[in-house]
Design a binder for these strands. Structure first.
Lengths: 209, 209
DNA sequence: TTGACAAAAGAACGTTCGTTCTTTACAGTT
DNA sequence: AACTGTAAAGAACGAACGTTCTTTTGTCAA
């Protein structure tokens, strides 16, 4: 019974059986705990079987299905697909509703989606409401790429009078200014030079918990 | 010369030398490529040294410094700290500026921060402006946990008349309703039963590129 | 120039690993 | 009851692995 009961609709590798999907789930659980794919002997325990050669056969099929791969040194490692989050094809209309059509689409790893250069990226919690009209709320987490240059229109973390602040960078009569996205707050016109700490490249919000 | 030139200010383990920081960087680079910590022999190449026993000594120190650990089976695995993003202690005041004091604080892995149960979490792009007053913009990515129950006040992805929509769940005279966060849009009062696809647990925004 | 110590190398060894090949168990079909 | 294919088990083996212990190299201070 090969693929008579496919595990899900995002894989159609011919030799990937529904039982393999169970093995994949167990491997994903183990990896989620330990961030490592263990030896064949250990995988016997993880999979609940007793045969190393069968473990190898399973991993080979998981590899052909694109969930894991081997380094040039023969070490099994996960692929993107292994631990990625599915991105639904249908977007939700926050405006008008749209038909429920497609199911599974692309995959994304959130971390990789938001971070280009990890060593230069930092997370900064946002306090206050001065950027609320830009959809940046108190409690949001700003993903900031540290660099001291920015373009007009960028939202930047600037250091003004030795203080951090998050504002939109703009130019007024040849001088850089920092513009809040809240009419209750004043535009900041730095007296001396304007020092840029970094540029906002992403935003994270976590609800409830 | 132990720690005469510390690698950075977020670690003060007594036996963690500045050279160990270089080894850590090389290990992080390798791990970033292969998502795996290889054998001691391979690490000799990675570190540019020739001694397996010295590799072990290095890994032991990295372990004591909290960057890696061993599974019960002896496999080296990274800790959170190994590949985490720093979270600045000072928040940025989107409102009023705050002094620049602290430097490095906690660490977070964005993926783990936003996702509790990977298998039930999906990403859905947001289209339209009906939730804009909740700071949810066109083009944002909704992190949605798939489940069919929700509480009043939750922002939910609901299926109304076979259509997806993102709204705040509310109750009106004993009936569930879906409330937009934009006065230009109408409250949705489902005729039949209201089907919940999932609950919004997070939001991601990516600026520019 | 000797001593002391850290950094690194090297050798030796028992264990574990992945691989290959052969064999068994089981279910469905004829 | 025999056939067929899949799923799994098991044995055997050389290579690779981690560990431990000993030795060398380099550097600074006395």
């Amino acid at each position: 019974m090969t693929d008579s009961n496919p595990p899900s609709d995002f894989n159609s590798s011919p030799d990937f059986s529904s039982r393999d999907a169970e093995y994949l789930a167990k491997l994903q659980d183990y990896y989620s705990d330990w961030k490592s794919i263990p030896s064949y002997a250990k995988l016997c325990e993880v999979f609940g079987i007793a045969s190393k050669s069968w473990v190898k056969a399973i991993l080979t099929r998981l590899s052909e299905a694109g969930f894991i791969e081997r380094t040039p040194d023969g070490v099994w490692v996960p692929t993107r697909q292994f631990y990625a989050r599915p991105l639904a094809e249908s977007s939700v209309q926050a405006g008008m509703p749209v038909s429920v059509t497609a199911t599974q689409g692309e995959f994304f790893v959130i971390d990789e989606l938001l971070v280009d250069t990890p060593s230069k990226t930092t997370l900064i919690p946002v306090r206050g409401d001065s950027m609320i009209e830009a959809g940046i709320h108190d409690g949001d987490i700003a993903v900031v790429e540290k660099r001291n240059v920015a373009n007009v229109g960028d939202i930047v973390v600037a250091i003004v009078d030795n203080e951090f602040t998050l504002k939109t960078l703009d130019k007024e009569r040849g001088h850089f200014i920092l513009r809040p996205a809240n009419q209750a707050f004043p535009v900041i016109r730095p007296q001396s030079t304007l020092e840029i700490f970094g540029v906002l490249i992403g935003l994270i919000r976590k609800y409830r918990k």
